[in-house]
């Protein structure tokens, strides 16, 4: 009985799909857990309480005022990175840029070019042209 090989497009597509799936799992695990651990208020009664917000004058003249928020653990300064709240920067913005870089790498080096074949109509037209 002749040995039947799997379709090469199926093999590469399955490999690429598994890599993509793993990437989604990693991105979700990192983003959701980092944001939940660093950017969530656990006491819902504080969410809309303006009294828990305090804006202090900047240490240096002309600087941006400091934002202090009491989210259940005493008043703490809100940290910003490049203008983003730090938990959004580390939990969403930076992973987004990393995923973009990975997507470029994935497209350039991991996805294999394959012949997708012809549909029956195109194949018939090609055959007719040869005849």
């Amino acid at each position: 009985m002749p040995h039947i090989q799997e379709d090469p497009v199926l093999i590469s597509a399955r490999r690429e799909a598994l890599i993509v799936f793993a990437c989604w799992v990693i991105a979700m695990t990192w983003s959701v857990s980092y944001c939940y651990l660093n950017g969530y208020i656990t006491d819902p009664s504080l969410i809309s309480d303006k009294k828990k917000v305090e804006v202090r004058q900047p240490a240096q003249p002309g600087g941006i005022p400091e934002l202090w928020v009491d989210h259940g653990k005493g008043s703490q300064r809100v940290e910003f990175v490049l203008g983003f709240p730090s938990w959004i920067f580390w939990g969403v913005a930076l992973p987004w840029w990393i995923c973009t870089a990975f997507s470029l790498f994935f497209g350039a080096f991991i996805v294999r070019d394959e012949d997708l074949g012809l549909d029956p109509e195109a194949a018939a037209a090609l055959e007719a042209a040869h005849v």
Partner: peptide, 22 residues
């Protein structure tokens, strides 16, 4: 700038504007 916008927005609303669950 973005940081100024965030600070102002939180002042107008509350801690939920800059923290989860929103």
């Amino acid at each position: 700038g973005l940081e100024v916008a965030s600070v102002t927005a939180v002042q107008q609303t509350g801690p939920g504007f800059i923290y989860g669950p929103g």
